[in-house]
Design a protein around this nucleic acid. Structure first.
Length: 484
RNA sequence: GUCGGGGUAGUACAGCGGUAGUACGUCGCCCUCAUGAGGCGAAGGUCGUGAGUUCAAAUCUCACCCCCGACACCA
């Protein structure tokens, strides 16, 4: 049986979940469920990144210990994912003991390889951002990220020999052109590497809230070596010996701002530790809200839980996927969400199921016939699109089939038919709906399950997406979507 | 600044060498099983600007303008 391992970024607990974080998790959930209906053995990992000075300070500001603080926020993330109907297998926290063990372990492997050295950093440091900066990076003498003052620093630090892996990384990309999806993100990273890599600082001296750096206890491990290792510790590395089967089928869903860390730094760490790189990094684009960038502080950072409560998790999931391709940027607006609920979910899909089941309930004959709609189903194209992570295209092709099915109703005018002729049309409609519900399951699982239940059947798999025989007696239920 | 993406119908996008397409919106028609749902049709674009290559350019080349992103802790 095939395996599939999908991860989301682990989210920094200094912030609440918003539409952007929710998006990465929804994409991963859709991929996970897609592989499940393909009959594969799936593992879906998400979690939270909980170390660092910012967390320490935020906790202090709220009069809490860092541990109390991160416990609370981790719960907030978990409950949000529950609202969004996210079916993850494990929620990892970087404060988990087994994760901390794995980080110490990989650090040791990298050190034994001779890739860690003590060096001296001289330059600028932005305290609130915990970031070292070069002269070039400063903007008007200030931190380019936050605009605050920087101070001159001369500090000993530990470095990872990233520069040593320049050629190896480039050959990883040329031997595996789909390592980073989409390809322009691979080129972006490739070009930057060709400009030259410099070694990476991997420790912090001033930060207490972190994993101790075993080589020198006066330091803690800085974010990337800690956070990235979650993808291994999440599936039981280093003690789980058969983690390789999952690992060789792994996909990291990440935002474009952290592509560099996942496509360059992470494989370099792994090469150093003697572990294969993940199979693929899927880089998603960003959302604007009503045309404006998501502001970190407040304002337009829409709460996904609020949207779910006012509409539904399926409506939100559908709208986010139907709005843009994964790697594109796009705009989210409640207006467009409503338009999709009314025009697509309610009118195309909901109404199709409802009108069909009304006809079925009035009909007393046999639900059997000859497949007539099967030629309209472009199953291969859907599978191909999904395998290329083009969820947008896949969903569009499924929707074409829904439209064809509605057209079939108009063309065959079942309200004028009776007996065998009517039974044949209803047979075609019910089988089409069953297949539609199956294909939509990864995207809108709750709705699919409601359709299955109205059809009187249990959930079906991708291999069942063909016209067969009907053995159940469907019963009409509530409309799937109400207009808003 | 360097690198990358983009600029196509009112809006969102696809097409990437051979008579400009899809969805939504707008307008008209048909249907009545259905959630005022469904189906059909029409209007609407000098494809960012300028030059070049070609029998032929949204598509290739060059220059320019504008928008967005990455540049080492923004999902």
């Amino acid at each position: 049986m095939g395996k599939f391992y999908v991860t989301t970024p682990i989210f920094y607990v200094n912030d609440k979940p918003h539409i952007g974080t929710a998006y990465a998790v929804i994409v991963a959930d859709i991929l996970a469920r897609w592989h499940k209906i393909k009959g594969e053995d799936v593992f879906f990992l998400t979690g939270t990144d909980e170390h660092g000075e910012k967390i320490e300070k935020s906790a202090e500001k709220m009069g809490k210990s860092p541990k109390e603080f991160v416990d609370e926020i981790a719960e907030k993330f978990k409950s949000t994912w529950k609202e969004l109907n996210i079916e993850y297998d494990k929620f990892i926290r970087t404060t988990d003991k087994d994760h901390e063990y794995a980080v110490a372990f990989i650090t040791d492997l990298i050190n034994k390889k001779g890739d860690i050295y003590k060096g001296e950093y001289e330059g600028w440091y932005c305290v609130p951002d915990e970031t070292f900066l070069t002269d070039l990076e400063l903007k008007d003498g200030r931190c380019p990220a936050c605009g605050r003052e920087v101070k001159k620093m001369k500090e000993e630090n530990y470095f990872f020999k990233l520069s040593k892996y320049q050629e190896k990384l480039l050959s990883l990309y040329s031997n595996n052109s789909s390592f980073v999806i989409p390809d322009f993100r691979l080129r972006e990273v490739e070009n930057r590497i060709k400009e030259g890599l410099h070694d990476l600082d991997i420790t912090r001296k001033s930060v207490k809230w972190g994993i101790p750096f075993e080589l020198d206890k006066s330091f803690t491990i800085y974010v990337w070596l800690d956070a990235l290792t979650n993808y291994l510790s999440g599936i039981g590395w280093p003690n789980n010996k058969d983690f390789t089967e999952l690992w060789s089928n792994s996909v990291h869903v990440v935002g474009k701002e952290i592509n560099w860390f996942h496509s360059v730094i992470w494989p370099a760490f792994l090469m150093s530790a003697g572990i294969d790189p993940p199979k693929q990094v899927l880089v998603h684009g960003w959302w604007t809200i009503d045309g404006k960038k998501i502001s970190k502080s407040f304002g337009n950072a829409i709460d996904p839980v609020d949207l779910v409560k006012r509409y539904s998790s399926d409506a939100l999931r559908y709208a986010l996927i139907k709005e843009k391709r994964i790697w594109d940027d796009g705009d989210f607006s409640e207006e467009s969400l409503k338009a999709r609920i009314n025009g697509e979910l309610a009118a195309d899909l909901g109404n199709l199921v409802y009108r069909t089941l009304t006809l079925v309930e009035k009909f007393e004959g046999e639900l059997e016939g000859t497949p007539e709609l099967d030629s309209k189903l472009k199953l291969n194209k859907i599978v191909e699109a999904m395998d290329n992570f083009d969820t947008y295209l896949a969903l569009s092709i499924i929707w074409d089939f829904i439209k064809e099915t509605n057209k079939y109703v108009t063309d065959r005018e079942p309200w004028k038919l009776k007996e065998k002729e009517l039974g044949n049309v209803l047979y075609n409609l019910l089988e089409a709906i069953r297949i539609i519900a199956t294909l939509l399951y990864p995207f809108i699982p709750h709705t699919s399950n409601r359709i299955f239940s109205q059809l009187g059947i249990s959930a079906s798999k991708l291999e069942d997406c063909k016209f067969t025989e009907i053995h159940s007696r469907p019963r009409k239920g509530e409309p799937l979507f109400k207009k808003v």
